[in-house]
Amino acid sequence: MVTDNKKSGRRSGKARGRLLPLVFIGPHLILFSVFVLFPILYGLVISFTKWDLIGTPEWVGLANYKEILFNMESTYHKDFVAGLKNTVMFVALNVPVSILVPLGFALLLHIKAKGSKVFQSVYYLPTLFSISAVGIMWMQMLNKRFGLVSIFGIKKALTITNPWMWIMLIIMSVWWTMGTNMVIYQAALGGVSKDLYESAALDGASGFQKIRYIALPSIRFQLLYTLVITVAGSFNVYGQPLMLTQQGTGGAPKITVLIMTITNLAFGSGQSIAGMASAMAVILGVFILVVSLIQFRLTTKED
């Protein structure tokens, strides 16, 4: 009798134990399946259809992909290439600056000179603002008639003329996003053992040698991690050119990137071409994923 009780007690405990994890992870698992997993799969399916967001999607196989990638006459192909060009340009310009500038700041702040705490707070501040607010500030500040540039006698519309619009776009982007990478590097540098620096100093190492041979190798992992994240983030660029390079009141932005092409096709004025837009999104998405995976692969190989 006694043993029986014990047994059944243990058994019901086990059953409860099996269900218990579901109480903790279940709600998120449902949200994840519905709002992350399902849309990815659904997006893949849509990319093989002709669809206007309203009617029933019509299966067209690989037609969208063929049109975007290989039909040189198609406006979709032209829009895609134009958007891709600007997106790639942004990645190429933005990534090196978005790694080197915060790294420089982190190294300087690591010296812990007077005021470094306050300056650090200032450098980080812009990351807390929305791109719409940041874009407004920069666009007005760069106004040729009464903005900052007017005191230098620059009479050009800096946000819509080449090459200035690109330079300004990158400066604003770095200003806005740099803080995140900076605190990652700072945390990593803070974790480097002081003994390493001290023994290097005893050996007569210069400041640059300490950076080159101690600091940078010690934060190698963080450098590679931020590289992957920054590359992926830069391919997703959208808000900065949209807000900064607007032409006139309510006009289209001068620099169109791929995400704009995609959202315009799917949600712009006129008939929605959601199937085609989805195919573009999948191409971009897969491309970002592959680039990230290659970078991850290279980083893990090194270890």
Binding site: I25, F32, V34, F35, V36, L37, F38, P39, I40, Y42, G43, L44, I46, L53, A232, F235, N236, I259, I262, T263, A266, F267, A274, A277, S278, A281, V282, L284, G285, I288, L289, S292
Partner: peptide, 24 residues
């Protein structure tokens, strides 16, 4: 395993989800 699967799936760039999410 389950957790790493979730991590892996969420590596898919957001842009793929936007149009289907709007539909949902």
């Amino acid at each position: 395993t389950l957790f790493y699967m979730l991590m892996g799936i969420s590596l898919f760039p957001n842009i793929i989800n936007i149009i289907p999410l709007y539909q949902m």
